[in-house]
Amino acid sequence: MKRYLIGAISALALTATTVAAEYPEKEIQGIIQWGAGGSTDTVMRSVTPHAEAALGGTVVMQNMTGAVGAIALNYVADAEADGYTVLMGAENPMLYKIMGLGDKDYGEFVPINILARGTPLLVANNDAPFNSYSEMIAYVKENPGTVRFGSTGPGGLPSVVTAMINAVEGELDVIAVPYDGDGPALTGLQGGAIDVMPAVLGAAIEGVRAGNMKALAVFDTAENDKLPGVEAVAEVNDGYNTYLPWGPFFGVFVPKGTPDDAVAKLSAAYAEGAKNPEFIELMEGRGFTLMGISGDEAEAFLSKWQQGTAWLLQDAGLTKASPEEFGIARPGE
């Protein structure tokens, strides 16, 4: 009886939708790789309503945390590739393989939209005995083993930025104090638990504006208009041009094998959503560089990003397995 009833209702539902049997015919599950309140979460929750409007469907967003985002990545990769399960993630899955965190990365996915890129910023505690990037390098070289850098685990933004500094300036002897995210680390910085922290600009900018911490340098090829007067590392040391511009990114992905129709519709919807003036204002206010790329352009961006970062970490001796093992070519080869 019950089964019959369910069957009847679902048959009814099917006939009702065959009139417009087009994607999306039901709600889409959006899996956010990081916890509620984090930057990936905020970015996704602010762009998706605009994309929903363009798509004419519903996206139910859920946070799935754990194992540095690998749980969410595996969940979506294992889900049916029908366009109804979407991954909303950040850059770090591109490093899972070499960090020994998993055997999957965005190579198993089709990028729907790479929304934006962040710029790393080097900030210091107000009492630190240096006021600029050059002064910091000089100080660290004179006082080895005393300056404390915040870090967020291997493969995180601080580890990449630190590897970059070491590659360009020569090995610096600093203490890397591990935190479980840039929020807690910046809190520690303000309280004097650490002296220097490489963080994404958006996370630190309010603290800098209020004078609670000082900005040493932006990790970019040119000064950032949000922070006039703060030097760009590439202008100080030409060596950085090899690696920059570099930054963490946010993107929306579906598993490979998703029907083209669904990919096209989702891409169009998110491209439209990313053009929303409110969203643009919000992202620019936080110092993010809008990208809004998809398709081949996004694939090219991803593989370039992966090559550069993976080999940087490999050369710094931070990886568990060589990028070579996974066919990640050295940049420029």
Partner: peptide, 9 residues
Amino acid sequence: VPEAELIQF
């Protein structure tokens, strides 16, 4: 149970 389809309906 085709829940999502039902809700969409």
